[in-house]
């Protein structure tokens, strides 16, 4: 097992506000690593720092596309990072609304080809994989939230990433839809995809993760297997608050 991304001492400040403080963890090859934490913990900021949307104030992000190939991607522009093989989705879905579902995915597929026919072929393959074939000719703006989140994943997949980063791809979905996305994620993992997932829904994220990293107020407070995290005192405290944590201890 090798690391594909190493995040070291990452700090991001907005003025006086510290969004991420000294965060370090690794993402292992062909594993699902999830990033959880209460609202405002700095999960999306961390995402943005890794994918180049923000330039971190200090710290380093290193990417290993191959075993002995090391690239420092700290503060690189987003499109370069994407070309290297790290693609993200957005928490607030950004469907290309005046384009059809197929065109949305094709826009991603053009990263590795210049020919429209090849891009279309790849897009159709990915639509099949993500269960969107039926909606192929629908305009982006006519989709439901669940479909948009799916398009978001499909578009990112079309760039053929080594590491796929999903930002709250299940928020706002119902139980069945969450199950569908969980299955999709597991299917991707089986095909050798490395994933970093930010998620709020514990029931969905715990069963599929290989490793969970917990952020609270910008700091990493725990890291480990889902079982360890579920029983971790600090994590429970961060989620429930000191008062309720104390109460739960008493009973």
């Amino acid at each position: 097992m090798r690391n594909i991304i190493e995040i070291r001492n990452l700090t991001m400040k907005f003025g006086e506000l510290i969004a991420n403080e000294d965060v370090s963890f690794d993402i292992e090859h062909e594993h699902i690593v999830s990033l959880i934490g209460p609202n405002g913990a700095g999960k999306t900021t961390l995402f943005n720092c890794v994918t180049g949307f923000y330039k971190p104030c200090s710290g380093q992000v290193t990417y290993y596309p191959e075993e002995d190939n090391k690239i420092d991607i700290t503060g690189q522009p987003t499109h370069k990072i994407c070309k290297l093989g790290i693609t993200r989705t957005f928490q607030i879905v950004k469907t290309l609304s005046e384009m059809t579902v197929e065109q949305n995915v094709m826009a991603g597929a053009f990263l590795h080809t210049n020919r429209t026919s090849e891009a279309r072929e790849l897009a159709r393959h990915i639509l099949e994989q993500t269960g969107l074939t039926q909606k192929r000719d629908e305009l982006g703006r006519n989709l439901t939230v669940a479909e948009r989140k799916r398009v978001e994943i499909a578009r990112a997949l079309a760039t053929n990433p080594q590491v796929l980063m999903l930002d709250e791809c299940m928020a706002g979905l119902n139980q069945t839809e969450i199950k569908d996305v969980m299955n999709l994620i597991l299917k991707l993992k089986d095909s050798g995809q490395t994933l970093l997932i930010v998620e709020h829904i514990m029931e969905a994220i715990m069963p599929i993760s290989d490793k969970v990293v917990v952020l609270s107020s910008g700091k990493k407070i725990a890291e480990g297997s889902p079982q360890d995290i579920a029983n971790n005192d600090d994590v429970i405290k961060a989620y429930l608050g000191e008062k309720y944590h104390a109460k739960s201890k008493k009973s």
Binding site: T51, F53, P77, T78, H79, C82, K83, T87, R88, T89, F90, K94, L96, S97, E98, M99, Q103, M106, A107, G108, F110, L111, T113, N114, R115, T116, A119, G140, R155, A156, A158, T159
Partner: peptide, 26 residues
């Protein structure tokens, strides 16, 4: 319009962030 260039232009029109995230230099 039907080439890579056209698709990239439209992606930029619809969303700058998405364009960057799928490897386009807007």
């Amino acid at each position: 319009e039907n080439s890579k260039m056209g698709y990239y232009w439209k992606a930029i029109r619809e969303s700058h962030e998405v364009a960057e995230a799928i490897g386009i230099n807007p």
